[in-house]
């Protein structure tokens, strides 16, 4: 790892914060997509069962 100078704390926190934020966003998008797809599949299954 390179030397980030006297302000390394701020740089690391900035990247860490952005990484966490973006990871959260990706995770939320995927979980939301999966839940909705599951719900849709269940509903369509029950519709075709009738």
């Amino acid at each position: 790892m390179i030397d980030l100078g006297p302000h390394a704390v701020f740089i690391i926190w900035a990247y860490l914060g952005v990484a966490l934020g973006v990871a959260g966003l990706i995770g939320w998008t995927l979980i939301d997509a999966r839940n909705t797809a599951k719900k849709l599949a269940a509903l369509e299954a029950s519709r075709s069962a009738k």
């Binding site: 390394a8 701020f10 740089i11 900035a14």
Partner: peptide
Amino acid sequence: QMGDTVRI
């Protein structure tokens, strides 16, 4: 001028 903080 800004040193390493430019990486932010």
